[in-house]
Design a protein around this nucleic acid. Structure first.
Length: 445
RNA sequence: GAGGCCAUAGCUCAGCUGGUAGAGCACCGGAUUGUGAUUUCGGCUGUCGCGGGUUCGAUCCCCGUUGGUCUCCCCA
């Protein structure tokens, strides 16, 4: 390819100012929700030893990674495809010294060697929330509630997105109650996970392969598609599937915790939510746009064995990841992002205009620096025209709060301060002493 | 990894059965030597994604390639 036509690598994004403004808007909701929920921010390397990932996910993961070896080097590395191994490594390294619970969040970029499609890119940003060292449904709900808080701050409601949740222990007992043997349990969960992708007859065939009777297959099919608002009694779900209520006791604990936290309306029980088999040990959940039009906004759950897997002590853990790509799609679907991301850029406090006199020309650069030293976001025009109308046009396009006009009054030490937010009329303009400008901006900001 | 569609100005797009390109917006300047959304006049812009082939001649047809988009696969 010739040198004048470089393109960004497949599945990566260039963030022009208006694009980055959107990303920061999302990240701000994530970060503020994390902090308000008591999580501390952490960060790790953008690449790790390849073995860190194969240790958790097996050799098969390598195809999904961007891995590399330094020219002449002997170590294999991989760009991080997820944050959890890094987190587990960090916790394991200092497990003895960390106060429990460990409540950490991170907003790292991730890399996956996948073919890009809607909601999936090769580089993206993912918000990670994790609580370690504490067992119990209340912790699971604490984590989920933090996700909800961030989504709420972005303008979403329970009518836009739902937390679809299930519980590994409950599913295990459910399967057992339906007559699925211990050995077939993993197969059964895989089948639950694939319920929407398989044709009915193929689903039935595979259900029979679990060793179920015709009646058992019917119940299994019912269970696989079972969803109900978390607000409804868990016993209703058990009755519907035809199993003892006690089998779903774990879900009832989650429901009780969600009730106490006041997030019931955001949650739906969904027996079809399974997620990584070798990984999760308790509550599992995904957050979905309610119509199912987009991929999962977030996914996570309880994974009590993970820190141990990375050489640490046995440690309870619960967390989730939320990517920026699907979330931005959902926000756009719901008209919760401006058409032009520039509307999310920081607004100038003052836009300084010289009307053209020698005194004004001399004053402008001095005033700019003075305003900035005082902590104001100050801009001026680079246009050569001194047509005040045109320059006010620039001020408006810059979305400045105030225009500061250096005109004839400057000889008396005064400038015109125009409030650009108060409509298109000139009535909102006052003469103020140049020396008192910062005071006026401070009061009116 | 498999397949469909797409790529023309900074942006959104037009461009006839092949004859080397236009519009709107944006941008810059003036009208108007002091007042901003829908005043007005003028101006700038392209190796038509890239490479090759067919042809007298390719933005247009063919092949390859890069990127985008969507589906399948996968999904920590």
């Amino acid at each position: 390819m010739s040198t004048h036509a470089f393109q960004a690598p497949k599945g990566t994004r260039d963030f022009y100012p208006s694009d980055l403004a959107v990303r920061r808007h999302i990240e701000h909701a994530w970060r503020s929700a994390s902090i308000d929920c008591g999580f501390d921010e952490v960060e790790g390397p953008a690449f790790e030893h390849l073995e860190l990932y194969t240790a958790k996910s097996g050799e098969g993961i390598v195809n999904e990674l961007f891995s590399f070896r330094r020219a002449g080097g002997e170590n294999d590395y991989a760009l991080r495809p997820e944050f959890t191994p890094t987190l587990a490594r960090m916790v394991a390294a200092r497990a003895g010294a960390l106060p429990v619970p460990v409540k950490w969040f991170a907003i790292p970029n991730m890399f996956r060697a996948e073919r890009p499609q809607r909601g999936r890119l090769r580089e993206f940003v993912q918000w990670n929330i994790d609580t370690l060292g504490v067992e119990g449904a209340a912790t699971d709900i604490d984590v989920i509630a933090c996700a909800i808080l961030a989504l709420e701050r972005l303008g979403l409601t329970p009518l836009d997105v739902q937390v679809r949740l299930s519980h590994r222990v409950a599913i295990g007992r459910l399967l057992s109650a339906l007559g699925v043997s211990e050995e077939k349990s993993a197969d059964a969960m895989t089948l639950l996970d694939r319920r929407d992708k398989l044709k009915p007859d193929e689903f039935a065939t595979r259900a029979q392969a679990l060793g179920l009777s015709a009646e058992g297959v019917a119940s299994f099919d019912l269970a696989a598609r079972a969803t109900q608002p978390l607000a409804d009694e868990i016993s209703a779900l058990a009755t519907k599937i035809g199993i003892p209520v006690e089998a779903l006791a774990a879900l009832d604990e989650v429901r009780a915790a969600a009730t106490r936290a006041g997030i019931l309306e955001w949650c739906t029980v969904d027996i079809g939510i399974v997620r990584g088999l070798a990984y999760y040990t308790g509550t599992v959940f995904e957050i979905h746009e309610i119509s199912g039009a987009e991929r999962a906004v977030a996914g996570g759950g309880r994974y009590d064995g993970l820190v141990e897997l990375f050489g640490g002590p046995k440690m309870a853990a619960c967390g989730f990841g939320m990517g920026d790509v699907v979330l931005a799609n959902v926000l756009r679907d719901r008209k919760l992002l401006p058409d032009d991301g520039a509307a999310l850029l920081p607004r100038p406090d003052a836009f300084v205009i010289s009307a053209g006199s020698e005194a004004a020309e001399a004053e402008l650069p001095r005033l700019m620096m003075a305003l900035r030293r005082a902590g104001f976001h100050a801009r001026s025009s680079s246009k050569v025209t001194r047509n005040v109308g045109k320059l006010l046009g620039d001020a408006g396009k810059a979305r400045a709060r105030f225009a500061v006009i250096l005109g004839a009054e400057l000889t008396e030490g005064q400038i015109a301060l125009k409030n650009l937010d108060s409509g298109s009329h000139s009535g909102s303009q006052t003469l103020v002493a140049l020396a008192e400008l910062t005071e006026h901006l401070r009061v009116k900001a």
